[in-house]
Amino acid sequence: MVKPSSSSSSTSQDALALFNSLRSAYSATPTALKIIDLYVGFAVSTAIIQVVYMALVGSFPFNSFLSGVLSCIGTAVLAVCLRIQVNKENKEFKDLAPERAFADFVLCNLVLHLVIMNFLG
């Protein structure tokens, strides 16, 4: 029979071990991908801040709210796409040059921000 205290301590130890292994695995990630992750995190947190703000003040300029949030979401999605394509581990895109992937990323971003500016009102 397992004691509750030893069980909880083993759970926290498991979580700690998991977290440590995750951190050590992630530290092996190339810096370029880490930068992309930082960028995605920044975009998603900006989107969350806007949603909270909208919940507080109301949805009056709804088009502005949509364009603000969608610009963050769009940026995050495009950055994730870029990360998938430039990841060396990913064999699916091994034929695609990282320069080509980056060019696609830039073009899509330009289109996104053009649309956002039109809709911002």
């Binding site: 930068i35 992309i36 960028y39 920044f42 975009a43 900006t46 989107a47 801040i49 806007q50 703000y53 003040v57 109301g58 009056f60 300029p61 502005s64 709210f65 364009s67 603000g68 949030v69 610009s71 963050c72 940026t75 950055a79 971003n109 921000h113 956002i116 500016m117 911002l120 009102g121």
Partner: peptide, 21 residues
């Protein structure tokens, strides 16, 4: 509209962020 300034700010922040990135 003053209430929409955070949204404007977010949109322009994303553009700047894109450039810096």
């Amino acid at each position: 509209i003053p209430a929409a300034y955070p949204y404007y700010g977010a949109a322009f922040t994303m553009m700047t962020g894109f450039f810096v990135f």
